[in-house]
């Protein structure tokens, strides 16, 4: 089979499966189910082979068995201690045994231990800089608007000043931060009227945040639809079938 025909057939298969998956919009049907299962099977098969060829083979099997070059000469020695990992891994499957399922807790415990150990570093490296960056000036030191790149003012001077438009923006940020944090005061009953108002504001500001997240999600989903349409009309029909440039 020549390469051009192979690409044309693979693109045609892509179009058929895309239409098949979209067909669920009409109603649940066997064609959709077929495409869905085809995708699941392909993804599972690919993952199994990918994990072995791309990962386990190099970081476990080669280290255990050693490697040779094309001429069969030894490149690196094997370390049989890596074989000890195999029974530990297999212990995970003991979860299916009523009698020996305690063994599954050994690998699970190792994973949990690694994960828990990492979390100390993860927590501080994630939130430490954010807390520091959260301390923003809310009083301006210069004019209202930040001068543009074509204003002729030295960029370092612009960066050193707090313009009032920035100060207002920083104040909104600080207010949002404090009010949203106050919304999560669950440990005791809030009776203070001012804190209650701030608390309610926090709830509304959270809703605005969720709205923004929902908006970006909708944009992303639309982009995926547009990409599929481009694939069908341009990549398959125009370029592959009609050899457009």
């Amino acid at each position: 089979m020549n390469l051009e025909l192979y690409y044309a057939l693979s693109k045609a298969a892509g179009v058929v499966v895309t239409v098949g998956l979209f067909s669920v919009l009409y109603k649940e049907n066997k064609f959709y189910r077929f495409c869905e299962h085809l995708f699941l099977g392909l993804a599972a098969g690919w993952a199994a082979v990918g994990v072995w060829t791309e990962s386990l083979h190099t970081i476990w099997y080669d280290r255990m068995m050693g490697t040779v070059d094309e001429a069969g000469k030894a490149q690196s020695g094997g370390h049989w201690i890596y074989a000890a990992l195999l029974p530990v891994g297999f212990m995970s499957y003991m979860v299916f045994s009523k009698k020996h399922n305690w063994m599954a807790r050994v690998p699970l415990g190792i994973v949990l231990g690694v994960w828990s150990g990492q979390q100390i570093q993860a927590y501080f490296d994630t939130y430490g800089p954010q807390v520091r960056a959260g301390m923003k000036p809310i009083i301006g030191t210069s004019g209202f608007l930040v001068p543009g790149a074509d204003s002729g003012i030295n960029p370092q001077v612009i960066a050193a000043n707090v313009y009032w438009s920035q100060a207002i923006s920083n104040f909104l940020f600080m207010f949002t931060l404090v009010s949203v944090l106050s919304y999560f005061l669950f440990s005791f009953e809030v009776k203070n009227k001012i804190i209650l108002k701030v608390n309610i504001m926090g709830r509304y500001l959270l809703m605005i945040g969720f709205g923004a997240i929902f908006g970006t999600t909708v944009m992303m989903r639309f982009t995926l639809v547009i990409d599929r349409m481009y694939f069908i009309w341009n990549e398959f029909f125009y370029k592959t079938l009609f050899h457009g440039k």
């Binding site: 990492q118 570093q121 993860a122 490296d125 994630t126 800089p129 954010q130 520091r132 960056a133 959260g134 945040g209 923004a212 997240i213 970006t216 999600t217 944009m219 992303m220 982009t223």
Partner: peptide
């Protein structure tokens, strides 16, 4: 979590869904 402390500049290219959460990392200089 695991590379930002090494002081190597990082940039991400994320999907639209991830923009709000990634904006936090950008605004805090991470």
């Amino acid at each position: 979590q695991f590379i930002s402390s090494h002081k190597v500049p990082m940039i991400f290219a994320v999907t639209g869904v991830m923009v709000p959460e990634t904006d936090v990392y950008y605004n805090s200089g991470q």
